[in-house]
Design a protein around this nucleic acid. Structure first.
Lengths: 252, 252
DNA sequence: CGAGGTGTTGAGAACCATCAATTGCCGTGG
DNA sequence: CCACGGCAATTGATGGTTCTCAACACCTCG
């Protein structure tokens, strides 16, 4: 049961005793498969479960009445999805599959048992939710105050940093998002995403080859957008029962 | 001790037994006063406490190296500030006082005891953090995908909705933020905030008088920006020991 | 009275959006 | 096999929203 969907994600950051893991493992339902662009749950519908991404990319977005779209988070394997809806009865955004993928649902009402019986896990979930919040402020900084090229630099660096958690040595990555989706994430049109990507390429900052992206000058790009890696480190020193491992950073 | 800073805020949403309140009350330190535009804590410095706002307005922001600023949250009396930094050792944004005000610090490491001894309070804090996240996605939608006037409509409606929690009948409110700060929140310049406010006034949607703002046509403005009130309702049905009060909404 | 902060207004420019046309790619079906 | 349609990316022309820069009025406070 230690092979639950959450295990690989959470054990990256913190040691959790077997009893707590037992609780988590028993809470996970059977997994669900989705094909690319399938809608997992629509905005406004009942949101009574969290999901753990087992494979594939997902993202969630909100729409304005006239069709303008804002993508608010992109989710990768190991991510926990749906924190934003815990405070409300109905989903605050629409969740779709960006590629084929598999989710493990986790009924929201089971969180009760996590909070009463596994405080260390509850604290970790809390921390993950709060980390999402920091990522949102980074994205807000980009959409609110950056030029198109700076936005793209941020967008690519953020994806790169996230993917390095599981693949520290990958120098390039495949982007299963089209340019309209990229634009809807950082507040641009698909047309200007294209033009700005070409510009970044001509500056020698990135290169593209059959849909794969390589970041050629990470330092220049990080300076462009004041980038900060939120993934390689998290502070779990305040966790219950954590006196002996005050700060757990990246993968050992 | 029931008169702690957190009490009025949290009791709005949920009943919590006296033992849990005792724990919370004992955790709160002495309060701290700040005068307008004072810096509470700088980005990058150690973030080992949460704050509860007792009085006044505060906001937190991030800066780009060249001075561009993005305000990421505005905080009012009763709000809990600092969730975003729980996941990291150092503060992810700079917190300043928008007006004179008072904060109650709450050492982060005391959260241990909340998670182990007061799971219902832990769940509520979790929910509040997650609600902040939803507010951030609303702001992201505004900065990323709205026109200047729509952004301002959102900004004013959001403040109005928040202030109505404590003052349900107020039809106008005072804004202790200058137009540069408004612009830094929704991604505009101070100049364009001024022009857009004048435009909203000429449309008959809002009126201003000695710094007070009145929303004249809330329905029109809500339609403009697809506004949703995140403050009047929260779902606490999944809380530990909450079987008997599944959904607690606004103030009774 | 002068200084600084704030809001307003105008002219011009810059950045990005919109619209439209073209290309390439892929899967489908004739 | 080829024709066809659809999706995605690119490119160019044009226009609009917003920014920048500047000047001015107003208020408060020293």
């Amino acid at each position: 049961m230690i092979e639950s969907c959450l295990y690989r994600k959470l054990s990256h950051y913190v040691d959790i005793d077997d009893d707590s893991w037992d609780i988590l493992a028993r809470l996970e339902d059977a997994e669900e498969s989705y094909s690319a662009s399938a809608v997992v749950r629509e905005i406004g519908t009942s949101a009574d479960e969290l999901f753990v991404v087992k494979s594939g990319w997902f993202y969630s977005f909100v729409l304005l009445p006239d069709g303008r779209r804002q993508i608010v988070s992109i989710r990768h394997p190991g991510d926990v999805v749906g924190f934003a809806d815990i405070a409300y009865e109905n989903a605050c955004d629409t969740l779709v599959a960006a590629s084929d993928g598999v989710l493990c649902p986790f009924p929201r009402k089971h969180l009760q048992r996590v909070f009463t019986d596994a405080p260390r896990v509850a604290a970790l979930l809390f921390t993950l939710a709060v980390r999402d919040q920091v990522l949102l402020t980074d994205l807000l900084k980009a959409t609110g105050r950056m030029s198109a090229r700076e936005k793209l630099a941020y967008f690519l660096l953020e994806l790169d940093a996230r993917l390095r958690i599981t693949n520290p040595d990958k120098t390039s990555f495949r982007l299963p998002l089209n340019q309209t989706e990229i634009g809807d994430t950082i507040g641009l049109t698909n047309v200007y995403v294209s033009k700005s990507l070409v510009a970044l390429e001509q500056q020698g900052l990135v290169s593209r080859k059959d849909g794969d992206i390589t970041i050629l000058a990470p330092d220049v790009m990080k300076a462009m957008c004041d980038f900060q890696d939120r993934h390689s480190q998290m502070d779990v020193g305040w966790f219950p029962g954590a006196e002996d491992d005050p700060h757990v950073g990246s993968k050992p």
